[in-house]
Design a protein around this nucleic acid. Sequence first.
DNA 1: TAGATTATTGATACCAAGTATCAATTACAC
DNA 2: GTGTAATTGATACTTGGTATCAATAATCTA
Lengths: 140, 140
Amino acid sequence: MYNLQSVVQRLEEEGLRITPSRLAVVAAVLDLSGHFSVDDILSQVPEVGRATVFRTMKLLSEMDVLCRVLLDDGSLRYRVSQRQDHHHHLVCVSCASVQELDACIDPEVLNELARTTGYEIEGHWLEFFGRCTACRSDSA
Amino acid sequence: MYNLQSVVQRLEEEGLRITPSRLAVVAAVLDLSGHFSVDDILSQVPEVGRATVFRTMKLLSEMDVLCRVLLDDGSLRYRVSQRQDHHHHLVCVSCASVQELDACIDPEVLNELARTTGYEIEGHWLEFFGRCTACRSDSA
DNA sequence: TAGATTATTGATACCAAGTATCAATTACAC
DNA sequence: GTGTAATTGATACTTGGTATCAATAATCTA
Ligand SMILES: [Mn+2]
Ligand SMILES: [Mn+2]
Ligand SMILES: [Zn+2]
Ligand SMILES: [Zn+2]
């Protein structure tokens, strides 16, 4: 979906400078499928400072180039986002492949929740875990 | 819901030893409402080693005395659990008060998800955020 | 009630994610 | 080409968490 050029364009649109460090991080990130940790990126761009890698990951997340994927143990990974709107993930616990989902909380459920609790609902986390077709046939 | 005696009994039932460190952590934990961090506990039991505090928190989580609460930024907190079955949380982003919820994913949605993705669904995270009645009237 | 046994402790050293600081550098607009 | 503001990266710090391991102590049993 994204390539280096399109991300560079996005950066320029945001008024951000195109630096070798940013280009290196973006290239490293675009090279990966599934989800990855900051360390995965750090080890692929040893010439870029640690803080800059973190800063760039954060930038890219805010620009919706990356999204954060919540794993079942509560840890967070990153992934190149296929879609820029609100969505959730289904993650294979065995191979890290990720599906981005249309499914969200039923608005009726949200209303009911607000009504019964008195809370004004502002947000939610919703992430699914399972085993993908490939991984299930591997272990069969 | 829980008191020191009942947790001690639970520990004994699990064949675990009753030690001063464990008692101190349990007492500190039972003293708190809402959600709390490991640091909150650490600072209340400075006489107990760091590793032991972590170990005890983990134990209590596995025994369903504590549950982990996911915040909107992706960080995890702990809380004394009111219920021992599968459940989710609604957290006030302003005062840390937590509601434990009956609401869960509609089984129909899960089936649909499994069917359309080919994944075998094994688990999920579902946590809600909002502002409780008290906090909303405070800022009004 | 004294051992023996085994779980538990806590000091220490790690690891990973992330932030704060700040002087040095550099991308880019003019 | 130059000025300036954005960016970098070294460093140090924070928080959550795990691994190691010798020393200690809770409990079982005789
Ligand atoms: Mn996504
Ligand atoms: Mn709970
Ligand atoms: Zn898989
Ligand atoms: Zn509140």
